[in-house]
Design a binder for these strands. Sequence first.
RNA 1: GGGCGUGUAGCUCAAUGGUAGAGCAGUGGCCUUUUAAGCCAUUGGUUCAGGGUUCGAGCCCCUGCACGCUCACCA
Length: 504
Amino acid sequence: MKFTDLEKIRVEKIERMRQAGIEPYPTRSEVTHTTAEAIRLFTEGEQAGRTDPVQVTVGGRLRSIRLMGKVYFAHIEDGWGRLQLFFRINDLGEEAMEQFREFFDLGDFIQAGGEMFRTRSGEITLHVRHYKMLAKAITPLPAAKDEVVDGEVVRHAALTDPETRYRQRYADLAVNPEVREVFRTRARVVKALRDYLDNLGFLEVETPILQPIYGGAAARPFVTYHNQLKQNLYLRISFELYLKRLLVGMLDRVYEIGRDFRNEGVSYKHNPEFTQLEFYMAYADYLKIMEITENMIAHVAETVLGKRVISFNGHEIDLTPPWRRLELRQGILEVTGIDIDAHPTADSLAEAMRAHGMQPKPGYSRGKLIDSLLGDFLEPTLIQPTFLYNYPRDISPLAKSMPGNPQITERFEGYVGGMELCNAFTELNDPLDQEQRFLEMGRDYNPEDEERHPMDEDYLRAMSYGMPPQGGFGMGIDRLTMLLTDRHTIREVILFPHLRESGE
RNA sequence: GGGCGUGUAGCUCAAUGGUAGAGCAGUGGCCUUUUAAGCCAUUGGUUCAGGGUUCGAGCCCCUGCACGCUCACCA
């Protein structure tokens, strides 16, 4: 390891500690309480009028040290909170006071034991009778001294540089408690989703991440290779095709929460790997899935945040069901003045777009043009929760067509905060129709493209055994977490977001 | 991949083309007993990297790297 000057000073302290017979990295601690437990015990005793001392040994990082000659104050922080320590030479003796002064730095993990009391200024504090180094920190935490004003921690010059925060998330978490809170919230979101689906009788399953044929979404995959099998494998881009096989196998309600991988550009709402929830429900259609969706999201907000009206990006968003339902055709008509139903071909639609001063991408299919109208003009306006429904067939190859209208599929997407949150449809379960869709899809691919999507014969065989009618649903957990924590980039809700190699 | 922007001490930030600074952190000292981001002193720099212009470059130019925003891409 290479050390800075600041770090060298601490490395030397480690050597001097060992010379003084103090182990800087002892194997065991004697911690009996968290800081929060210690404070709660004391407060309860105080309220009950008890005078017997509350004896605790707590552990944590040193976050502030104030040496005042023969008395020291310090704060430690653990995963539950902060506690002030009070050291007095009368209690600890000269040697212990001197060793603390000489060897202990901000960021060190220590334990301290004694009894709880309240200082003259009112702060609940541990009167230290004994203390011990638990783990010496060599690298200073990237934050300046904290102070506590009226019980609130005020940090001066906190770590803010996004590159350092993401590359050294451990340091970010260590000094920015609100970052820890984001990931606690994220965990509660996942738990609330699981509870909701479990209560509806869904079975949680795990399907392959390494897949010989990828599918279920339109995305470029990551490719890897199995040495012994001499076989290319793809990291999954969705769970869909495997989960739907399970409904053939009579697992009527299944869901999976896991990682998807898409070899595409990164942005504030795209990370190369992201967490997805997909569920499939036999005998349901997309209308039923809409109901489950709005209720599930409202339930999650209620459980995690205790409220259904959230604040996101300066907007007040009310997640209370029922959410607005807006037919895709109507939505596009309202924001662009173009009626997609009046333009049954790509050429016709492109002409209409040009007439409205737009520049449609040459070579796009009608469905892709509609998708671009949606993304460019409609999506940013969908702040309050909205289900857009009825999507064109050619961009929905796994969704069932509407009865009597083969060009429109029973598909919807949920939008909140101007961001696509989820995608769902009445699942196509007609194997002959599905094969036809795959073949049509193949026409979009250049035959010379080595990444050309192969036909998933096994999926068709599964469907040929008979697949119950069903509704399916997919949602990005990362984006939901962004909404519920009011973070505006996906990197804020992923512990270790992907960054370019720094070459350091 | 394109455009725009940013990169200075451990952290947060200053510095007309003319001696690289501040606060915090660090180090040394003061501090006689429930508080103090305390007081005094002090250390610390390949100004992202490499070229160029200039008497002189943190600053201007070129190339590269990283990050941010944005566009493109993205059933």
